Deep mutational scan, measured.
Amino acid sequence: GSPGIQSFLPPGWEMRIAPNGRPFFIDHNTKTTTWEDPRLK
């Protein structure tokens, strides 16, 4: 199987799917959430 997208996120980050189907990202380091992919910064 191919590695999940989770493995490509920075340490402490998690990806979830919102009720509307959009992915969002949780930064457990700062306890914040964002719509922006942290890998694109």
Rank of each mutant, 00 (worst) to 15 (best):
R16P: 00
N29A: 09
L40H: 09
M15D: 00
N20D: 12
P11L: 11
P11M: 11
F8D: 15
Q6A: 14
G1P: 12
R22K: 11
G4L: 09
R16I: 09
K31W: 09
P38D: 01
R39Q: 04
E14D: 04
F8V: 14
E36A: 10
Q6T: 13
T34V: 05
H28F: 08
P11V: 10
H28R: 06
F24R: 03
D27S: 03
D27Y: 05
S7P: 14
T30I: 02
E14Y: 05
R22T: 09
I5V: 12
I26W: 06
P11H: 11
P10L: 08
G21P: 11
G12Q: 04
R39P: 02
I26H: 04
E14K: 04
R22V: 09
I26P: 00
R39V: 05
R22L: 09
F8M: 09
H28K: 07
P10S: 04
I5S: 13
S2N: 13
D37V: 05
G1A: 14
T33G: 07
L40T: 11
A18D: 10
F25H: 00
G12Y: 04
Q6K: 10
P11Q: 11
I5R: 12
H28G: 06
D27V: 01
E14H: 04
D27I: 01
F25A: 00
R22P: 02
F8Y: 12
G21L: 03
Q6S: 13
L40G: 13
R39N: 06
R39G: 06
D37G: 03
F24V: 07
T32I: 10
P19W: 10
P38K: 01
N29D: 06
L9V: 02
M15A: 05
I26T: 04
G1Y: 11
K41F: 15
L40I: 11
E36L: 14
P38A: 01
T32Y: 08
D27E: 04
W13D: 00
P11R: 11
P38C: 06
M15K: 04
L9K: 01
W35K: 02
E36Y: 14
G1T: 13
K41W: 15
F24Y: 15
N29G: 06
F25V: 00
N29K: 09
F8I: 14
N29L: 10
R22G: 02
T34C: 07
D37P: 11
T34R: 03
K41L: 15
N29T: 10
I5G: 14
S7L: 12
N29V: 10
G1F: 12
D37F: 07
W13Q: 00
T30M: 06
D27T: 00
P3M: 12
E36S: 08
R22A: 07
Q6W: 02
H28Y: 09
G4P: 14
P19T: 09
R39F: 05
Q6I: 12
G1D: 12
G12N: 07
R16T: 05
E36H: 14
E14R: 03
E36M: 10
F24T: 03
F25D: 00
G4I: 12
I26A: 01
P23H: 10
T32H: 08
H28I: 08
P38N: 01
T33Y: 15
P23G: 04
T32G: 04
T34S: 08
T30K: 07
H28N: 09
K41R: 11
F24G: 00
P10E: 04
W13N: 00
S2V: 12
W35P: 02
I5Y: 13
I17R: 10
W13P: 00
N20S: 10
R16Y: 08
S2T: 14
P38Y: 01
I17Q: 06
L9H: 01
I17L: 12
F8H: 14
I26K: 02
P3D: 13
T34P: 00
T33E: 07
L40P: 10
S2R: 13
S2I: 11
R39I: 04
N20W: 08
F8G: 15
L40F: 11
I17T: 08
T30F: 05
E36V: 13
G21R: 04
R16F: 09
W35N: 04
E36D: 12
E36G: 06
T33K: 12
S2D: 14
P10F: 06
P19G: 08
I26F: 10
L40Y: 11
F24E: 05
L9C: 05
P23K: 11
T30G: 07
S7W: 10
S7V: 11
P11K: 12
S2Q: 14
W13M: 01
P23A: 11
L40M: 11
T32K: 09
F24L: 08
P23S: 08
P19N: 09
D27R: 02
L40E: 15
F8K: 15
F8W: 14
D27L: 02
R22N: 06
F24D: 00
K31D: 11
R16D: 03
H28W: 14
A18K: 05
L9N: 01
T30D: 04
T34N: 02
L9P: 01
R22H: 08
I5H: 13
L40K: 10
F25M: 00
T32P: 00
G4C: 15
F25T: 00
S2F: 10
F8N: 15
K41M: 15
T33A: 12
I17P: 02
F8P: 15
W13L: 01
P19A: 12
G12V: 01
N20V: 01
E14G: 03
T33R: 13
Q6M: 07
P11I: 09
R16A: 07
T34D: 01
P3L: 14
G1L: 11
S7F: 11
M15G: 01
I17G: 01
T33I: 15
R16H: 07
F8R: 12
R39S: 07
W13F: 04
L40V: 11
M15W: 05
F8S: 15
G1S: 12
Q6F: 03
T32Q: 10
L9R: 01
L9M: 10
T34Y: 06
W35G: 02
P38M: 03
P19E: 08
D37S: 04
P23F: 11
T32E: 07
A18M: 10
P38G: 01
T32A: 07
P10V: 05
A18N: 06
P23W: 14
I5P: 14
A18H: 09
P19S: 10
Q6N: 14
F24H: 03
I5A: 14
E36F: 14
M15N: 00
T34F: 05
D37Q: 06
F8T: 15
E36Q: 14
K41D: 15
W35S: 04
F24P: 00
N20Y: 03
R39A: 05
G4T: 10
T33H: 09
N29P: 01
F25P: 00
I17M: 10
I26L: 07
R22D: 07
T30E: 06
P38E: 01
S2Y: 09
F25E: 00
A18G: 10
E36K: 12
H28V: 07
L40D: 15
T34L: 03
A18W: 04
G12H: 06
R39W: 07
G21C: 14
K41S: 15
G12R: 05
D37M: 07
H28D: 03
F24W: 09
G21V: 00
G1K: 11
R16V: 09
M15F: 06
P3A: 13
P10D: 03
H28M: 08
Q6L: 08
P19H: 09
G1V: 13
D27A: 01
G4D: 14
M15L: 07
P23M: 11
T33S: 10
K31A: 12
P11A: 14
P11S: 12
W35F: 09
K31G: 15
D27G: 00
S7M: 12
M15I: 08
P3V: 12
W13G: 00
I17W: 11
Q6E: 14
I5N: 13
P10K: 07
P10Y: 06
P10T: 02
H28Q: 06
P38T: 01
P19Q: 09
P10N: 03
L9T: 01
G21D: 02
R22S: 07
G12S: 03
H28S: 06
G4F: 07
I26S: 01
P3E: 13
R16N: 04
G12E: 02
A18V: 03
W13E: 00
W13K: 00
S2K: 13
I26R: 02
P23T: 10
A18L: 09
G21K: 05
N29S: 08
P38F: 01
I26E: 02
I17S: 05
R39T: 08
P11Y: 11
S7Y: 12
P3F: 11
Q6V: 13
P3N: 13
I5K: 12
E36I: 14
K31L: 09
